[in-house]
Amino acid sequence: MLVLKSLDIDLTQSEKKTLLGFLTLYSFFTIVILLFISFLYYSFQKDLMLQQKRASMQDYSSELIFRLKDLHINFDKYKFYPRDENFNSAIYDSDRKLIFSTLESQNVDFNSEVYTTDSKIHFVEQPESYYLGAKYVVLEIKDDLLWFENLKKEIALFILIAFAFMVFFGYFLLKLFLKPMRDALHLLDRFIKDTTHELNTPVSAVITNVEMIDIDSLDEKLARKIKRIDTGAKTISNIYEDLTYLTLNNKIISQDENINLSKIVRQRVDYFKTLADVKKIEIKTSIKEDIFIFCDNKKISKLIDNLLSNAIKYNKVKGQIKVSLQENSLIIEDSGKGMSQTQVEQLFERYTRFDKSVGGFGIGLNIVSMIAKEYNLKINVQSQEKIGTKMEVTWQK
């Protein structure tokens, strides 16, 4: 996340997840590669240490074999197995059965000439002659592990430096990958700003003129046409306001005041009634009088608009919408398609759309989430597929 901040990029939630996933995967493979290289280096250093020890243990072995030969010849005279303070030893017959041992570790690997086990270094040799019946001579010395301690420091320093370099390299790689995406987003952002600017005047003119028409005085056929124009204009107007909010969000100065939420909810329900009528959706309201909230009028209206718009958009024909306003909560419940739990978890991500058959850009609920966070509003979503969705907005007095 520090890399993302240093790039000075304003990313959406989905983009952040994508980039975080890339960084996680990149870091994981970097660590795996560094550990693999470290293991190869460890194996090389261990083999080098064993070869160095092999030379001295070869001398010890030659000395022991000489003493075994002397004991073999003069067994009646000595009858004592030769010992040395520099090493422990053991002899085995051709069937690898123990004849005599002073080893601390009794597990012997006869297939290896020199190896380590239990902090001990073992050396296995086969004498030319079977003195005392010994086919195998095994030597054991202590491993002080100094080589391993030094090796750990070297590997730790290597991993630290290499990982820092790879992160530094990944930073520039990430900038390289992000540049075309950011350029495309800047072009899209400019296109949205230009488009919304051009839409404002004609849409406002259509809505204003439609509202001035006395629909009740028209014949039924013409009235239906006017209502369709009104519905289309309001749909475009709502999209325009959403796009404007996104493009100007950082520049919008909130005009917070104590506003009558009851009045605003009624106004917004009336505004969307035309859209609901197209799908023959019945809107039932239970609005308590004189509920006040301290916030920006336009922003709370935008929050309500997007909740109502979604309740209509994803509802079924001849469905229902229940709007309830109480002391500390606003509930908008529909009888629409509903969502799975996975979809509910992704509901407020920008550009998220679960049904491509309906219009929209997937930005409405993202705006709802932004406004809710600004005013510390809590949003609880309950949804069941093919039953409907209940959106509850709560706040503290």
Rank of each mutant, 00 (worst) to 15 (best):
P82K: 09
R83E: 15
D84W: 09
E85I: 12
N86E: 12
F87S: 06
I91K: 02
S94L: 12
R96L: 14
R96A: 10
K97Y: 11
I99E: 06
I99F: 08
S101Q: 03
T102H: 07
L103P: 03
L103I: 03
E104S: 07
E104A: 04
Q106I: 08
Q106F: 04
N107A: 14
V108H: 02
F110A: 12
N111S: 15
N111V: 06
E113Y: 06
V114Y: 07
T116D: 00
K120A: 05
I121K: 00
V124N: 10
E125T: 14
E125W: 04
Q126A: 14
S129H: 13
Y130N: 15
Y130V: 03
Y131H: 11
L132Y: 10
K135V: 04
K135R: 14
Y136Q: 09
E140W: 01
E140L: 00
D143G: 01
D143T: 01
D143R: 00
L146T: 07
E149N: 03
N150M: 01
E154P: 00
I155Q: 01
I155M: 01
A156H: 04
L157G: 08
L157T: 05
F158K: 00
F158R: 01
F158S: 01
I159K: 00
L160R: 06
I161T: 07
I161R: 12
A162P: 00
A162T: 02
F163H: 13
A164C: 09
F165V: 14
F165K: 05
F165A: 15
M166K: 06
M166A: 15
V167I: 15
F168T: 12
F168N: 09
F169H: 09
G170Q: 09
Y171V: 12
Y171Q: 09
F172V: 07
L173Y: 11
K175Y: 10
K175L: 15
L176M: 13
F177G: 03
F177H: 07
K179D: 08
K179W: 10
K179C: 02
M181P: 00
D183G: 01
A184E: 11
A184V: 05
A184L: 12
L185W: 05
H186Y: 08
H186G: 12
L188N: 11
D189V: 02
D189T: 06
R190V: 13
F191H: 11
I192Q: 06
K193G: 05
D194I: 07
D194K: 10
T196E: 09
H197G: 13
N200R: 13
N200L: 14
